[in-house]
Design a protein around this nucleic acid. Structure first.
Length: 900
DNA sequence: GACTGTAGT
DNA sequence: ACTGTACTACAGTCA
């Protein structure tokens, strides 16, 4: 029989500091909960106990936090981030059926001691888990003390039976009390004997066995100041021993019934795991009946497959007078429709494709509904449009090409995910289950709940999954319907309706058309470029191996570090957590003295170009010779869009060799590229938002802005600014936009931190309102918990409330950066939508292809060139009206390199 | 899957 | 006493 006992507070504390600070989407801290459960489950797996309980102190104790705290003899109060998690851990344990034992007036130590004594008497093998060495006094032949230690890379567990304590510390567990009585423990308020440290204490107790025996033999002991103290402070020693002793006779029983370890993975526990978003724990519930997880709405879900029923349903829909419905298309990896779910709240149906119900039929039904003016609420409108486009005939596709997806596919629609993103852009998923719990307060099954490890696309091919697919699709449609009004009204309350209706939603259509358009790529040229790189890479490899004296994997920072800093003995290596840093900026400093370094840097650069761009892009090429990226609208915290598969927003441009990649992107026959980018948009936004007269003045005068800043910061006449000064000023300008710190600037431009601070001080002297503005942003973020862009887009910053200094500093930088970066993002989104809409409205065939944060690329028919140039300039420059003009640089070219 | 490194803005 | 920088996507190693 085995009994496992856990010291709740102590393990929660270990978990808290051993796990990064997780929070769920509600901003509740969950790291300690997760860490605690993980450790607990691991001990249960290892020990396989029959009985199990967790003991807590009644009120939160304090903890030693770091070495110097113990040294100073103080214990830090429990951080609020941890404190709030203790009741949740207890709640979770109760949900798992684990007894949480507390006893008014008694410490957890006493409970553990008592239970382990009783357990041993009853014949149990006992394991006590704690982070606290004081419990070692409880070890016996049958009672094992386990102390988990978090080391990097995992946890190690120290285990002590009585014999192990003796071996490690030279004293028995009982004598451990005496040792502590002598040496004292400031953090436990145990005074101890003055002048006695661990060495003396262990020596005395090892020799005489207890403080009483020591006291009886003081005559034979070595004279000295410390012994005098011991004699004089005998009373204190006795008191200390009493304090150090864990009471194993607390008024408590070991109830074998209630501590019996049963199934921990109950429904209640599952619900809590979902609520705290402990996603890694969810798979452990796989044998749990989670069907009750679903709320009762699922009873109204219907699966229909009969054509006449479907027709009836659609007919009922158009007669119902509903002006919006929830919709969800189930489509395979090839975007072929498997079925469609629709919801009007009290009725939700899933229609799967079979027999007369074809993908084509269903797809066109949806288009019909939307064209009739019923708003279709999707989770991912743009993807839904791609699915429809995919089944369109070539005539229909041509119509989309000419008139845009909005006109030809879903003229009335909305995107619940995009809307939910506006409410909180920092989350990493906007799925139905996520929004359901947040907006509707109901917990519904997620993909993994229904399909386990199987990917949705795989499950969709599997007929036996039809029931789960119905459930999943219906929930998607139902939640889209049920949360739509709530989400929109919340957006309205937060003053973001304009952003949603006039920026984000139109942008969905703009991005769709961009994705459909794609960009032509010269595959042969790309492949030739790749081969050219390969030749040089092989040369470099050879040279590096020769200089290193052996072959190794240059791509492995670990192996590289060993070769450079150990085998070759290069000095000046900086260490990271796992080894030597081989980052470019570190290596560059070492390059002059070590020729191998230059080869490595060049190798890295070329390897990156080849793997990511030359080979990577080739893999993304569509059969029509064009590359189609996906633009993501719900990813970035600041409001920018991102680009994936492939990422076309980070194609090299700085280095000549990298820039060559842009030459393989070319306009189609009869076209040229027009590339237009905003000049200094973030600094102009900053000038406007801060209202700083000097910065506004510099822009209005059309001055070189970095030179102007240099002139002010370095107190140098404008015409006498040196290149170095200008470069530094440029770094300061960038730094201001990023939410600067002296440390960062110093590193950036290679000066001391003090000097960097002077630059910053001078900057704020030169631009006085800037300082007020940025301080204001921090204050606003602190007060409201979020900051906003000029258009009202929000970015929550819970970090500002953190008790951790570093986290708070991060929050401050975010508070300064997000409104600026976000406003610039808003502006270019407006410009994109307007450019796109005007191209359509003026019946032009030219297409907007790419956006790279402050740059737009348009494939322009030569006969439309003048008109497009004019239109692009107008829409970009007039996208916003600021205190300074928005200026753009526009170029044309026969490839992207030429045009940029 | 975590970590390192690097490309862009 | 000490921290270590905005926003991304992707490739590669290594446990």
């Amino acid at each position: 029989m085995k009994l496992l006992l856990i010291d709740g507070h102590s393990i929660a504390n270990r978990a808290f500091y051993g796990v990064p600070d997780l929070t769920n989407s509600q901003g509740e801290h969950t790291g300690a909960i997760f860490g605690f459960l993980n450790m607990m489950l691991k001990f249960i797996d290892d020990e396989k106990p029959d009985n199990f309980a967790v003991a807590f102190d009644v009120s939160a104790p304090t903890f030693r936090h770091k070495m110097y705290d113990a040294y100073k003899g103080t214990r830090k109060p429990m951080l609020p981030e941890l404190k709030e998690q203790i009741p949740r851990i207890q709640e979770m344990l109760k949900a798992m059926g684990v007894p949480v034992i507390t006893l008014e007036g008694w410490e957890a130590d006493d409970i553990l001691g008592t239970l382990s004594r009783i357990g041993e008497e009853k014949g149990f093998d006992v394991t006590i888990v704690s982070g606290d060495r004081d419990l070692l006094q409880l070890a016996t032949d049958k009672v094992k003390i386990s102390i988990p230690k978090t080391k990097k890379g995992g946890t190690e567990i120290e285990q002590y039976y009585a014999a192990d304590v003796k071996e490690t510390y030279g004293v028995t567990p009982k004598q451990f009390i005496d040792v502590k009585a002598l040496q004292g423990d400031a953090s436990d308020n145990i005074p101890g004997v003055e002048g006695v440290g661990p060495k003396t204490a262990e020596k005395w107790i090892a020799q005489y066995g207890s403080i009483e025996e020591c006291h009886a033999h003081v005559d034979e002991m070595k004279k000295g100041k410390v012994l005098d103290n011991f004699i004089a402070q005998w009373d204190i020693a006795v008191l200390s021993k009493e304090l150090a002793t864990i009471n194993v006779h607390a008024p408590i029983e070991l109830e074998e019934g209630s501590t019996k370890l049963e199934n921990l993975f109950t429904e209640e526990a599952y619900l809590l795991c979902k609520r705290y978003e402990l996603k890694k724990l969810l798979p452990r519930f796989e044998n749990t009946d989670t069907s009750k997880v679903q709320d009762t709405t699922s009873e109204t879900f219907k699966h229909i497959s009969d054509l006449s029923d479907v027709e009836n349903f659609f007919a009922g829909l158009s007669n119902s007078g509903k002006d919006f419905i929830g919709a969800s298309i189930m489509a395979g990896a090839d975007k072929s429709i498997k079925g469609v779910a629709l919801s009007v709240g009290d009725e939700t149906v899933y229609v799967d494709c079979a027999g007369f119900i074809t993908p084509d039929y269903l797809g066109h039904k949806l288009v019909e509904i939307s064209k009739a003016g019923v708003k279709l609420c999707f989770w991912d409108l743009k993807n839904a449009m791609h699915i429809i486009y995919q089944l369109f005939s070539s005539e229909e596709k041509a119509q989309v090409d000419a008139n845009g997806g909005k006109a030809e596919i879903f003229p009335t629609a909305c995107d619940v995910a995009v809307a939910a993103y506006l409410l909180n852009p920092t989350k990493n998923a906007y799925t139905a289950d996520d929004v359901a719990s947040e907006m509707l307060g109901v917990i519904i099954p997620a993909v993994a709940d229904l399909f386990g490890k199987k990917k949705l696309e795989v499950a969709l091919e599997d007929d036996s999954e039809l029931e789960h697919i119905t459930t999943y699709a219906c929930y998607n449609a139902y939640v889209a319907y049920a949360s739509y009004e709530k989400v929109i009204s919340e957006i309205k309350d937060q003053g973001m309706l304009h952003i949603y209706e006039d920026i984000e939603l139109p942008l969905v259509y703009t991005l769709f058309d961009m994705e459909i358009a794609g960009i032509a790529m010269d595959a042969e040229a790309l492949s030739a470029y790749g081969s050219k790189l390969a030749v040089r890479i092989t040369e470099l490899e050879k040279s590096i191996y020769e200089q290193a004296g052996e072959e190794f994997n240059i791509n492995s920072p670990k192996q590289l570090g060993v070769i450079l800093f150990e085998k070759l003995g290069i000095q000046g290596g900086k260490k990271t957590k796992t080894g030597y840093s081989t980052a470019a900026d570190i290596l560059e400093e070492l390059a002059p003295a070590n020729p191998i370094i230059n080869d490595i840097l060049e190798y890295r650069q070329l390897a990156k170009l080849k793997s990511t761009y030359a080979d990577g892009l080739a893999n993304c090429l569509d059969s029509d010779g064009r590359i189609r990226s996906t633009f993501m609208q719900t990813v970035t915290a600041t409001g920018r869009i991102s680009s994936t598969e492939p990422n076309l927003q980070n194609i090299p441009v700085r280095m000549e060799l990298g820039r060559e990649i842009r030459k393989v992107f070319y306009p189609k026959d009869g076209c040229v590229f027009i590339d237009a980018d905003y000049s200094q948009i973030e600094l102009r936004v900053l000038a406007h938002m801060s209202g700083d007269d000097n910065l506004i003045g510099a822009f209005k005068a059309g001055q070189d802005i970095h030179r102007s800043t240099a002139s002010l910061v370095f107190n140098t006449p404008f015409d006498e600014v040196t290149d170095i000064q200008r470069r530094s000023a440029k770094a300061v300008n960038f730094g201001i936009v990023y939410g600067i710190s002296a440390f960062g600037l110093a590193k950036d431009i290679g000066v001391g931190r003090k000097e960097a601070q002077e630059y910053i001080d001078n900057y704020f002297l030169a631009y006085p309102k800037m300082h007020t503005f940025l301080e204001g942003l921090k204050a606003e973020g602190n007060e409201k918990g979020y900051v906003t862009t000029m258009y009202g887009r929000r970015r929550p910053i819970p970090e500002l409330k953190s008790s951790n200094f570093m986290t708070r500093q991060f929050g401050e930088r975010v508070a300064m950066n997000s409104p600026i970066q976000g406003t610039a993002a808003d502006i270019i989104k407006i410009a994109m939508v307007n450019v796109h809409d005007r191209l359509l409205k003026e019946k032009l065939k030219s297409k907007l292809l790419l956006q790279v944060h402050d740059e737009l690329l348009i494939e322009t028919f030569k006969d439309e060139q003048a008109q497009v140039e004019k239109l692009v300039a107008e829409e970009m420059e007039h996208a916003a009206s600021l205190a300074v003009d928005l200026e753009i640089d526009m170029k044309t070219g026969m490839n992207w390199a030429e045009a940029h």
